[in-house]
């Protein structure tokens, strides 16, 4: 079997709140292979972005503790010094942020921002960098690359800005790209274009992509494997087909049920009771989703639930999925 690009083993990221550490990402393990899109889904507050930032080690290190292993091509990023990390960021692992207007520097031209990455990581001459930047802008489908090169972010539309973000992320041909909600701020038609663009770039470069999103329809469009996160834990892992055809964990099933469907009209949407618990006051011993499905008896849940393999590559946390039914059905 081929070696994964990224292998995460028991990753725990804890934040310091009032002198105590609380894990926002709790023993998460998964791996990403070449040419694969792994989607991480969950509501806001489930630890998806905390996970992404941990891989890039972008958290404030004075208030965060990262434990476990982040193995990138056999090397453990957790032990890396800040200096070593700077060699990885942008060159080996690229990141696409959610809101391109806030992530881009408003005082730098688009060309300069892309070149910054090349200046830092490569020994290309000024002329070559410019050529490479224009080539990148063409690759991400910007219509007038030479003109855009000298423009500022505010002169571009949302879709174009996101394309610039993507070109920054792929500037040094990274083998892994983390896309943190890349299409949330965009329109449907633009969203499709951006997703197709990511897929086509992947075809050329064979990079692995971690796609972080709360939009399950985006996941259904592009992902190969899905990781469902709830309250910092992985609650279900499987291939797209497994998750969409046979979702097992109550959380996955509830999420899928709350999407306004294209077929049925005017029916009430499914609502998950309660809220995602805050990391400070959460019962970590029992099934973390149990407070939101109170009609399921306590015996259905496991004590400190574990991931169970139900099919090859398909893992589900806790035993409550066997007994789960929707209220009122």
């Amino acid at each position: 079997m081929e070696k994964p690009i990224l292998q995460i083993e028991n990753l725990t990221t804890s934040f310091k709140i009032k002198e105590k550490y609380y894990p926002a990402v709790d023993h998460v393990s998964f791996s990403v292979f070449e040419n694969e899109i792994v989607a991480v889904v969950g509501e806001s507050g489930c630890g998806k972005s905390a996970l992404a930032l941990s891989i890039m080690r972008l958290h404030n290190h004075q208030r965060t503790k990262i434990e476990g292993e982040i193995k990138y091509k056999e090397r453990d990023l957790v032990d890396f010094s800040e200096r070593q990390m700077n060699q990885v960021r942008g060159k080996e692992i690229g990141i696409i942020f959610q809101e391109p207007l806030t992530a881009l520097n408003p005082l730098m031209t688009v060309g300069d921002q892309i070149e910054e990455n090349l200046t830092f990581h490569t020994k290309l001459s000024k002329e070559k960098r410019r050529l490479r930047t224009i080539e990148l802008l063409t690759q991400v489908g910007i219509p007038y690359p030479t003109r855009t090169y000298d423009q500022f972010p505010h002169e571009l539309s949302g879709g174009m800005r996101q394309r610039v973000m993507i070109s920054i992320a792929i500037a040094c041909n990274p083998s892994l790209v983390i896309a943190d909600e890349p299409t949330t701020a965009l329109d449907v038609t633009i969203q499709v274009q951006i997703l197709e663009l990511l897929k086509s770039i992947q075809k050329d470069t064979k990079m692995g992509i971690i796609l972080i999103t709360h939009d399950l329809s985006v996941v259904a469009e592009v992902a190969d494997r899905i990781i469902v996160m709830y309250a910092g834990q992985v609650v279900e892992i499987g291939t797209v087909k497994q998750i969409f055809a046979n979702p097992l964990h109550p959380y996955t099933r509830s999420l899928l049920k709350s999407i306004p469907s294209q077929v049925t009209n005017k029916k009430r949407l499914h609502v998950i009771d309660g809220m995602v618990p805050s990391i400070v006051n959460m019962n970590r011993e029992r099934c973390r989703f149990s407070p939101r499905i109170p009609w399921i008896s306590r015996n259905a849940h496991e004590e400190s639930p574990d991931l169970h393999e139900v099919a090859p590559e398909h893992l589900v946390r806790c035993t409550c999925y066997k007994h789960f039914y929707f209220k009122g059905s």
Binding site: V188, T189, Q191, V192, D215, L216, S217, V218, A220, E221, A223, V240, K241, F244, A245, I259, S261, Q262
Partner: peptide, 8 residues
């Protein structure tokens, strides 16, 4: 452009 919910 509406996303397709069925991966198949």
């Amino acid at each position: 452009a509406i996303p397709e919910l069925n991966p198949e």
